[in-house]
Design a protein around this nucleic acid. Structure first.
Lengths: 198, 198
DNA sequence: CACCTGACTGGACATGTGTCCAAACTAGAG
DNA sequence: CTCTAGTTTGGACACATGTCCAGTCAGGTG
């Protein structure tokens, strides 16, 4: 909340505006935890933040934008950036996947909210979507890299499958077909299948 | 449209009701092609079908339900059920994936509409979501099966990765990150990676 | 201390979604 | 031909979303 990370929803904000945004985002997360994403409205968030709805809409293009922003911050927060563990690529990928999943599951309502939100055509959402996708890619890339030759690029085909599988898993979880625990299991097995082959 | 397939949106409809449903679904598809899924409303569909909005809501729980229903019919239609071609599992899977993709791309607006729609919590959507997921699973299962031992079950881990990858690809396409043509390419390559290993 | 710029506010507006219900209609049975 | 069961209808309702704008307020400047 009181982040040093200056990943603001809109660029070029003066301190006063930045504070308003922080209040809104903090209130958004609280509201999400309190009432869930179905019941949350931009207006209730504004009220919780002690700000008028009109102001909220000045900084949040939409409810979906709010969810995307919160998710991005949750994902990119310093405490979520841990190095992959393991001697082999498989182990490192599995640890990455488990770390990502458990990070996501820390805020179940956020996870449930963000899946549909990211599908929005809202340009602010589109921006965040790309960032989030890039973040996942970077994590997988880091996990695939061999410690002794960190600059050797990973096989793009493998990377693509990993990203597709990961987003598929998030989708399944977002639809409620799988719990996030099951997701972690399946992805670990998926990594095995993908890297070891059949 | 004039289908023999009795996959009705609600069970136990008499002929008169069934006809109304058909009119609504046909009108829904037309409207979708004409104005796209953003501009489509249940009321415009009702008008196009020559029926009152109240009637439309008698048979369609929601706009999302309409999209899910149309997608399901499009996917499960007899003309979409072609046998996988190829001597190896990889070839059969690739042909299946290409067939599915090209079927979906026949109705681009439907494809764009259905991705967010399937995430709805609407119970009617949930029902169709399961059916659609089951359909994909069945296709991959059929493609994996060796012609000479058709009853030998496929490796569940491989099947899971395929389903995850496939849904991830649909998600990416639904978000506009990839075109459906690119999807087909990547999936073909993904199948290769998954089955051949690294 | 008065001013002025720019953030914030209140409240109306247009539109969409899905629900509800009493009244009207229609097709088939008798 | 009439009755009736069941479908369809018109229209209002409650609520959410996002936009807009004229007016108010606060904090830094001169």
């Amino acid at each position: 909340m009181s982040s040093q990370v200056f990943e603001t929803p809109r660029q070029g904000l003066n301190p006063r505006q930045a504070e308003t945004v922080e209040k809104l985002l903090a209130a958004g997360l609280e509201e999400l935890r309190a009432v869930g994403h179905e019941a949350l409205t931009v207006r209730t968030v504004a009220t919780r933040a002690g700000v008028s709805p009109a102001t909220a809409y000045t900084y949040l293009a939409s409810k979906n934008h709010l969810f995307a922003e919160l998710f991005w911050r949750h994902l990119a927060a310093p405490e979520a950036r841990i190095a992959p563990q393991g001697a082999s690529a498989v182990e490192r990928l599995q640890s990455t996947v488990r770390a990502l999943t458990s990070r996501i599951v820390e805020e179940p309502e956020l996870a449930a909210a963000v899946t549909p939100a990211l599908l929005s055509t809202d340009p602010d959402v589109a921006r965040l979507r790309l960032r989030i996708g890039g973040e996942f890619l970077a994590r997988f890339e880091a996990a695939l890299a061999e410690p002794d030759q960190p600059d050797r690029p990973a096989d793009p085909a493998v990377l693509e499958v990993l990203v597709l599988t990961w987003s598929g898993a998030l989708l399944q979880a977002g639809m409620g077909l799988l719990t996030y625990d099951q997701i972690a299991e399946r992805l670990a097995s998926a990594v095995d299948v993908i890297l070891r082959g059949n």
